[in-house]
């Protein structure tokens, strides 16, 4: 191998006996300096508005910062107050976990199952069905229609029907009644949740090697379920991983739907999530230190959940 091609192989520093790892890295960095020029603008912005805020939040969560006075370092006091003195926060944590534990897995499984079911449709039909399932997730405030359907007066579609059919005599205040708010918000969140993961699954199913199915049929795959388990799922591992990340991250981000449908705060805080608590302390009360602690807890939950699920998925089929 000539000197020139050896230097191109980045992962083989041991091939070079004449220089140390550090020298080699420095040489490679100099040789590829154009690459750093190319990524610099993006990473500057990404760092400033994504990485730094996360670190800043963590740092401020140990202080009493309120945007006006100099912050005092109070170590864990914000977290102690959150978990021991703030009953509403505990409600928020419970609701967030319920929300995420239902919408995450259900939306993930629905995305896959529907993508799998429509995979055998003719291309034009598949494109049309994709549009039907995907459009609620990109249509902005269209979920407000659920507020009309479940409106608390007799003009709401559901109340009107129920009264007309004689099941009830008085309209039900769906979004003012703690029994209904959470389930309804979860249904609406699921309605908007067939997004990026869904598209990724549709694409992934399209590129599974056809010959594998034929070979499988010869080898005794008896039905579509066996085909799914033995051929399709193993071939789509990478899409399944990406879809999981999208679904999990999404499952923590439905606070906006709750606010729009059930109000801020929802009745008896019955659908109050960590996102709402954060908005309350950060955006309205300007207790930035305390809000940063809330943000850090939410960050840890999303991030931890993703990492754990990713590790678990990586083990499947090994």
């Amino acid at each position: 191998m000539s000197e020139n091609t050896a230097a191109k192989e980045v992962k083989r520093p041991t091939a070079r006996k004449d220089m140390t790892m550090a020298q080699w890295t420095l040489k490679e960095m100099k040789r590829n300096k154009v690459a750093y020029v190319m990524i610099a603008p993006f990473f500057l912005i990404f760092t400033t508005f994504t990485v730094v805020p996360v670190i800043l939040s963590l740092a401020l969560s140990f202080t009493t910062f309120n945007m006006l006075e100099m912050p005092d370092f109070i170590f864990m006091d914000n977290y102690i107050r959150l978990f021991l003195d703030d009953d509403i926060f505990i409600t928020a944590v419970q609701n967030t976990l319920i929300f995420a534990a239902i919408t995450g897995p259900v939306s993930y499984i629905l995305s896959f199952v529907i993508a799998w079911f429509i995979n055998e449709l003719a291309p034009k039909m598949r494109a049309f069905v994709t549009l039907i399932f995907y459009s609620p997730s990109i249509s902005g405030a269209v979920y407000m229609i659920w507020g009309v359907i479940f409106s608390g007066d007799t003009y709401g579609y559901v109340n009107g029907m129920l009264i007309n059919l004689g099941f009830i005599t008085e309209p039900i205040q769906f979004f003012q009644n703690a029994t209904y708010v959470m389930p309804l918000c979860i249904v609406v969140a699921l309605w908007t949740s067939l997004g990026t993961a869904f598209l990724s699954f549709i694409a992934g199913l399209q590129i599974v090697d056809r010959s594998l199915y034929e070979a499988g049929a010869v080898d005794g795959v008896k039905n579509r379920w066996q085909e799914l388990w033995y051929i399709t799922l193993p071939s789509m591992k990478e899409q399944l991983m990406f879809g999981a990340v999208m679904s999990i991250t999404g499952s923590f981000g439905f606070g906006g739907i709750v606010t729009a449908l059930a109000g801020f705060p929802s009745v008896d805080y019955c659908a109050w999530t960590i996102q709402h608590h954060l908005e309350d302390y950060g955006g309205q009360r300007f207790e930035v230190g305390y809000a940063s602690a809330i943000a850090t807890v939410l960050f840890a939950m999303m991030f931890g959940c993703n990492i754990v699920i990713k590790k678990l998925l990586a083990k499947v089929g090994q």
């Binding site: 990404f46 939040s57 990340v245 850090t296």
Partner: peptide, 13 residues
Amino acid sequence: SLMFNATVAGIAN
């Protein structure tokens, strides 16, 4: 960065 959404960075931002 795909593993958390922007709400957590809002106040620091």
